[in-house]
């Protein structure tokens, strides 16, 4: 039996007015695979995550998750645009962590992690609490359960956000520049948590990142986006060591200069 991809972009196009952000994107991600998406700003890399999280509608093509269409659904033997109920069912497979954390400011760290499990998964308060505590311990915040986001550092907030997303038990985790809004000294603690997830949980991960060192060490595959297309992709050694594409080399050398 062949393993089917966990995520599959099939000719996906996204336009904002006259601007084509993603141009007929094809991309397959296998279960458990860790894919890093790099590229200059405006290359469409964040849009890939936002479409997968159903925060953006797509203009053309189909996105598949776990063998089922995400953006569409089967009806009378044909694929039609997904309705709200289908989207809600499919979204449960995906979790997302944002650049600016987007924690709920009026809830403690614990409540942030309990809200969706209680209201969406219908867990009892006790179950949800136990799950939230476990996850907050995993991200190293066992002593901050009752702290509000405003009382936490950026790195701590982002770790709560990771725990919050994991509490929904997604199969796919999306990380959208999760360290870009952090002070440099706080980046490490968040990356450490992601490393830990990678080794301890059976998650498919897709991350947009500017941390080239992390992408190189952590990802199974690196995709370089340029102008709404994947200009080049491959294992990190190949992309960072012997990129074939001129654009990739230019981008990487510019990144190196910045360090």
């Amino acid at each position: 039996m062949t393993v089917q991809p966990m995520v599959k972009f099939d000719g996906v196009t996204k336009r904002y007015g006259a601007l084509t952000v993603l141009d007929s994107l094809d991309l397959e991600i296998m279960p458990g695979e860790k894919v890093a998406v790099i590229g200059p700003s405006g290359s469409g890399k964040t849009t890939v995550l936002r479409m997968l999280m159903t925060l953006e509608k797509i203009n053309d093509g189909v996105i598949w998750v776990d063998g089922e269409p995400l953006t569409h659904m089967h009806k009378d033997g044909r694929l039609v645009l997904a309705d709200a109920a289908h989207l809600r069912r499919m979204r449960g497979k995906i979790g997302m962590v944002f650049q600016h954390f987007n924690l709920f400011p009026h809830m403690s760290a614990l409540k942030n992690c309990m809200e969706a499990p209680v209201t969406v998964l219908k867990l009892s308060k006790e179950e949800a609490r136990a799950r939230a505590v476990e996850l907050l311990e995993m991200v190293g915040l066992a002593d901050k359960l009752d702290h509000y986001p405003a009382q936490l550092s950026g790195g701590q907030q982002q770790r709560v956000a990771i725990a919050r997303a994991l509490a929904m038990r997604p199969k796919v985790m999306l990380f959208d520049e999760v360290t870009s809004a952090l002070d440099p000294e706080l980046v490490g603690e968040v990356l450490n948590v992601i490393r830990r997830l990678g080794s301890e949980l059976d998650l498919t991960m897709l991350m947009v990142t500017h941390q080239m060192g992390f992408a190189r060490e952590f990802a199974d595959r690196v995709c370089f986006f340029y102008g709404g297309k994947i200009a080049e992709q491959g294992p990190p050694e190949q992309i960072f060591g012997q990129a074939q594409n001129e654009r990739t080399r230019q981008f990487l050398s510019a990144c190196l200069e910045a360090i």
Partner: peptide, 12 residues
Amino acid sequence: GQWEASTALNLS
């Protein structure tokens, strides 16, 4: 971002 986080967590 609060709306987007709510969507990402699949809240109704």
